[in-house]
Simulated assay, not measured.
Amino acid sequence: FLVNLAVAEVREGAPKAAPEDLATIEEGLRRLKVHGWRSEEEEAGRAPFVRRNLLLLHFVLYCEKIELSLQESTQRALSELQHKVKTIADMLFQYCLQNRWVKAALTVTEVEAMLVSGVWDHKDDECRELMKAKWTRQGLKVPKLTISANAADVECGAQATIKVEVTRLHAYSAEELAEVLKDQGPTGAGKQAEQPQPKEGWWVIAEGIRTQKGADKAKCTEVLAGEEDLSHNSLVGGQVLACTLDAPMMACEINFEAPAHPGEYKVMVHVRNTGCAGVDVRRKVTFQVKQPYTGRGKATAAADDVPELD
Rank of each mutant, 00 (worst) to 15 (best):
L2I: 14
A8L: 14
A8G: 12
E9A: 15
E12A: 14
A14P: 06
P15A: 05
K16V: 11
A17P: 04
A18N: 09
P19C: 06
P19N: 05
L22I: 03
L22F: 02
T24H: 03
E27S: 05
L29T: 04
R31D: 07
L32E: 03
W37T: 00
W37M: 03
S39F: 03
E41A: 10
E41S: 10
E42A: 06
E43P: 02
R46E: 05
A47G: 14
V50G: 00
V50H: 01
R51P: 01
N53Q: 08
V60N: 03
I66S: 06
S69Y: 08
Q71M: 04
S73Q: 14
S73H: 09
T74A: 00
R76E: 14
L78P: 05
L78N: 07
S79K: 15
Q82R: 05
Q82C: 08
K84V: 10
T87R: 09
I88S: 04
D90C: 09
Y95G: 14
Y95D: 12
L97F: 11
Q98N: 14
N99Q: 14
W101T: 00
K103G: 11
L106P: 04
T107A: 15
T107H: 14
A113E: 00
W120H: 04
H122K: 05
K123M: 08
K123T: 10
C127F: 04
E129A: 09
L130D: 04
M131V: 04
K134D: 01
W135G: 00
T136G: 05
L140Q: 11
L145H: 08
A149L: 08
A152K: 15
D153N: 14
E155N: 07
A160W: 03
A160V: 02
I162V: 09
T167A: 13
S173V: 15
G185K: 00
P186T: 01
G190C: 02
Q192W: 05
P196F: 02
P196I: 06
K199L: 02
K199D: 02
E200I: 15
E200Q: 15
G201E: 15
W202H: 12
I205Y: 01
I209Y: 03
T211C: 10
Q212N: 13
A215W: 13
K217Q: 09
K219S: 12
T221H: 14
E222G: 01
V223Q: 13
V223N: 10
A225F: 07
E227N: 13
D229H: 13
D229F: 12
H232L: 14
S234T: 12
S234C: 12
G238P: 01
Q239G: 00
Q239L: 09
T244V: 13
T244L: 00
M249Q: 14
A251M: 12
N255V: 11
Y265W: 06
K266P: 04
V267M: 01
R272S: 12
T274D: 07
G275K: 03
G278A: 08
G278H: 03
V281D: 05
R283L: 11
V285C: 07
V285D: 06
Q291F: 10
Q291D: 11
Q291N: 15
T294P: 04
A299T: 10
T300C: 11
A302G: 09
A303I: 01
D304R: 00
D304T: 11
E308I: 03
L309N: 07
L309Q: 07
